[in-house]
């Protein structure tokens, strides 16, 4: 427990060590700590921002999806309407064509019938004349009854 100049020496050493720490140890470490704290803060802020962005993007995507769904529905109903219209039109067209065909066929049939009637009438007249000639050959001159026969033919 003796005191001597060691005490003064220790004060000097203490001063040097404290100066060294103050100059070369403390600043780099606290700077690194502060920088890291800054980095972490920025990282956290970026994470928050990313989270907000994500929810915003999700919302936008949902909106787009809904819009797309809606427009798709519109499109489908329009297409359906158009299809029904086309179908109706086609159906009407077909009916018209069928009707026209029927009419034409009927007309043709009518003409053919008339034609057949006419030729039948001609043949009947000829047949009647032949028959009458045979009858009348015996008693009537054919030439005298020509006019009568023609009248008869007209009446058939």
């Amino acid at each position: 427990m003796n005191l001597n100049a060691t005490l003064v020496g220790q004060i000097a050493v203490f001063a040097v060590l404290a100066w060294f720490t103050m100059k070369f140890v403390w600043p780099p470490i606290t700077r690194a700590l502060d920088e890291r704290a800054q980095k972490i803060q920025e990282g956290l802020a970026a994470a928050d921002k990313a989270k907000a962005d994500l929810s915003l993007a999700e919302k936008r995507a949902m909106d787009e999806l809904r819009q797309a769904r809606e427009s798709a529905g519109d499109m489908r109903s329009a297409a359906e309407r158009q299809a029904t219209g086309l179908l109706d039109e086609a159906r009407a067209e077909a009916a018209r064509i069928v009707a026209a065909a029927r009419e034409a066929a009927e007309k043709e049939a009518g003409v053919a019938m008339q034609h057949a009637k006419d030729s039948l009438r001609e043949q009947v007249a000829v047949l009647a004349v032949v028959g009458a000639e045979k009858i009348l050959r015996r008693e009537i001159n054919a030439d005298n009854h020509k006019e009568l026969l023609a009248n008869l033919k007209q009446e058939l």
Binding site: N2, L3, N4, A5, T6, V8, G9, Q10, V13, L17, F20, T21, F24, V25, W26, P27, P28, I29
Partner: peptide
């Protein structure tokens, strides 16, 4: 009390250990 005397062992170990301490801190820094 004798101001003409210095304890060489205390001074030596004090300086060596102080230097070691600040050296380790400085290496980390």
């Amino acid at each position: 009390v004798d101001w003409g005397i210095i304890n060489l062992d205390s001074m030596f170990w004090s300086i060596v250990l102080g230097a070691l301490a600040v050296f380790l801190l400085w290496r980390a820094a």
